[in-house]
Design a protein around this nucleic acid. Structure first.
Lengths: 245, 245
DNA sequence: CGGTGAGTGGGTCAGATGACCCAGTTGCGT
DNA sequence: ACGCAACTGGGTCATCTGACCCACTCACCG
């Protein structure tokens, strides 16, 4: 093995660990399995990390920071907030379907954190991060469709996080695309019901329901790209043809 | 140890296993830990089960069948569907708060099933069971408040399951009661939006929104009572004084 | 009331795993 | 060039774990 600076070695081990966890679960992420995945010798492991526990803790923290919004849905003209939200959620569902192991790994890591003495706080931080991402996306989505949230943004964000979690968990359990699709629609409907038309900020105001407007972004959902393997956020395959990004 | 018939021994081991898993996770449920929890000798384990795997498989299946609705909310006069649903969800939240380890154990068992070769099907069955329970409760709730679901019952049930999962997961991560409460309210709001006033079935019909009516049951949520420890469904402490059950 | 086999107890065994050590080697600064 | 310390390779060690064995004993049948 080439001579690597400790930092880089740690990074590679973290990435390898995530890969192993995706494949075999946290329990399967033994020092040997990780080291093997990274193509290193066992000694290198303990040179980079004091213990397996340290690696796991680092991984959890790492994953939190790297969590990204994978829902950047391309703009679509004259779309309502609900439609925009739905597309975003379906987009999220797609990423789960494409890499179920990754999503499972995320859930497992969260659970590991919740159950491990020093890491309970990290699980909370993880959800905090999810909510923050959700909030950003929801804010943008509302703005682009000329809507405003009727309740505090972070409150709506928490709801979105709960919905995506439930959605992902259910799909992971039964892999029923149809059902998941319907639940995504429901989620979009439910969330948009928490908004009102416009607020008068932009310029116009109308009493009716969500009014079309130049759209663009979309709702979020969490998914942590492994420290290395596979590109985090992809270009966003348009669910429907829309104006080119 | 008293001389026990195999069946009883298996039952006790399953109960002990669930207890251990609640405390230490699936990974911590070693044959020795389980046997210890049950106050038996290791040999008794392999007398009752061919392997640890067999016990775990049995436990997953077991837990599915024993999943119960813990949301039987007592009746409350003149309550809307939304209110009824909210109370039920809050009731569920209470059970999670009271025994977080149990809920965590449920999630972990599901994950174990999803990842274990022969058990993937069980995870799907588990969710099927959750939906069935949700469906029953939703049907009752709608009926008692003179409402009807606008979509297929099992579709709405899937949404409820997703919502409770998301709700529980979020609470387990950050233990934020306020936030969980708000999300529960949101869930109730969102679900009741999927219903319409009445259908004309009972007798009356009115265009307005959910009309009061004799209420009684409530929404569900899943929680598997351990094979033995602690009574599964409790008497349902009235969140509000209502007619005696 | 004696036999006997279901059920029990106290081991053993092989394999996996986390931690760690020590003798090298080799990149890099000087 | 040269030396040193950062880094690597190839072990070892104590534990834990799942599986399993075999002699014993006691409850119940005949």
């Amino acid at each position: 093995m080439a001579r690597l600076p400790v930092a880089e070695r740690r990074r590679r081990l973290l990435a390898a660990a995530f890969t192993v966890i995706s494949r075999a679960g946290v329990a399967g992420a033994t020092t040997r399995a990780v080291v093997d995945e990274a193509g290193m010798k066992l000694a290198s492991f303990h040179y980079a990390f004091a213990s397996r526990e340290e690696l796991l803790a680092e991984l959890v923290g790492d994953v939190i920071e790297r969590t990204e919004v994978v829902l950047a849905v391309p703009p679509a003209p004259g779309e309502t907030l609900e439609q925009l939200l739905e597309r975003g959620l379906l987009r999220y569902l797609d990423t789960v379907r494409e890499a179920p192991e990754r999503e499972r790994a995320m859930f497992e890591l969260t659970q590991y954190a919740m159950r491990t003495p020093g890491l309970e706080g990290l699980a909370a931080r993880q959800y905090e991060g999810y909510r923050a991402l959700a909030a950003v996306s929801l804010a943008e989505a509302a703005e682009r469709t000329g809507c405003a949230w009727q309740r505090p943004l972070d409150e709506v964000a928490a709801h979105l996080v709960a919905l995506t979690d439930g959605l992902a968990l259910a799909w992971l359990a039964d892999a029923d695309d149809t059902r998941a699709h319907r639940t995504a629609s429901f989620a979009a409907r439910a969330l948009s019901a928490e908004s009102r038309p416009a607020e008068s900020r932009p310029a116009e105001s109308r009493p009716a329901s969500a009014r079309p407007a130049p759209t663009r972004p979309a709702p979020p959902a969490h998914t942590a790209p492994p420290t290395r393997p596979e590109p985090p956020t992809r270009p966003a395959p348009p669910t429907r043809p829309g104006e080119p990004a």
